[in-house]
Computed example of a mutant assay.
Amino acid sequence: MGSRGPRVLDAGIRVAGGIAKKHSLASSAGQKKNATHGGIQFLKSYGQHILKNPMIVNSIVEKGGVKSTDVVLEIGPGTGNLTMRLLETAKKVIAIEFDPRMVLELQRRVQGTPHQQNLTIISGDFLKVDLPYFDVCVANVPYQISSPLVFKLLSHRPMFRAATLMFQREFAMRLCVQPGDPLYCRLSVNTQLLARTTHLLKVGKNNFRPPPKVDSSVVRIEPRPISTIPCNFKEWDGLVRLCFGRKNKTLGGIFRTKTVLELLETNYKTYKALQLHDPSTPEGVRKLVEEVLATNGHENMRASKMSQDDFLVLLATFNEKGIHFA
């Protein structure tokens, strides 16, 4: 049933707030026509899927820890069922919506209600708009922008308290897994450096209409205070990117390759020049790399099994030798 039916039946659509191309989740093969809701046609080219389980809507809001004094950011509100539930709980909701049809539907839905003055709608692409102040973010997000969406949120200042977000299940698990898990990757390491991530809830594909091809999961992301992040993130990401290029290869195998050594030498010379030091390397960068690899057993480590502390020690050791990654 649509927005003209019971107060909460669908939980918005998985699109908007950043959709400019086809969603990574296609409708099931047997779906010949786009679904409709309250007279609005959902576009398969946008990958729009309606969450039809009201219990999940309530659970997302509850697990989001929304307070009556909170300003809530919602990404992709769609027809507004999750939005309306948030408005019942929070002081204010700021919704970012890409699809103009959904903007109109959301405006129609709150018109004349006590919540009308507490909703602000930003029409546009989430990845391109300037984010306002907010306390928490609660959203059923567009899956194909999941990674840039997470890092745009984590780079936002002032820092928010928490984000409760629904993702494609595999992506969600990558945010939360620990070293040694097959899904452990650069995304895992980078996100967990900047935030505490917790898997909250699995949402089966049959909870959507039409059902997508994959299950979903809800994740809670709590940013760490800037003062507790022990390194420069650009430096960190440069190192992690190299290590996870071949995550099951030893660090010795990675850092002895010609291309990596050439990159490190270029970075070394640039850094020295910026520090107004002689950029020449009489002993050669290769020797410096060998010294790093010989420290703390780094040579035989593999990114797929390295902890946050392992990467921090490795980065500090490289930096001590004058080797940088940004």
Rank of each mutant, 00 (worst) to 15 (best):
T198N: 15
L25D: 02
Y143N: 04
T164K: 10
M301E: 10
K32A: 10
G78C: 07
P225G: 11
S59A: 15
L51H: 07
Y271W: 13
K128R: 14
R220V: 10
M173F: 13
E105H: 12
N232C: 10
V72K: 05
D70Q: 04
V240H: 04
V136N: 04
V103E: 04
C185E: 15
K91M: 02
A11D: 01
N58L: 07
L149F: 03
N296A: 09
S227T: 08
A303R: 02
D10P: 00
K33P: 01
P114N: 09
G64C: 02
T250V: 12
L131S: 01
F167R: 01
N140T: 07
G112F: 11
L293Q: 01
R196Y: 09
T113G: 13
T250N: 08
V110Q: 03
R174L: 07
F311D: 03
N207S: 15
V218Y: 04
K152W: 12
L274D: 15
K63P: 05
T79H: 09
L242H: 13
N319I: 03
G297E: 08
L183I: 08
P54V: 01
I229H: 06
A95K: 05
A95E: 04
N190C: 15
V203Y: 11
L263W: 00
S304F: 00
R302G: 03
T198R: 15
V203S: 08
D310C: 01
G2L: 01
Y271F: 15
S27N: 09
T228N: 14
K213F: 14
G47N: 11
L86D: 05
T295A: 10
A163N: 10
E235I: 10
V240D: 01
A273L: 11
D215P: 07
N190V: 13
K269Y: 13
K205L: 14
N58V: 00
I254R: 01
G65Q: 08
V110A: 04
M173I: 11
V141D: 06
D278S: 12
R302N: 03
S59N: 12
F318G: 02
G112R: 07
G64T: 09
D125Y: 04
K269H: 11
S217D: 12
L251T: 03
L288S: 10
P223V: 04
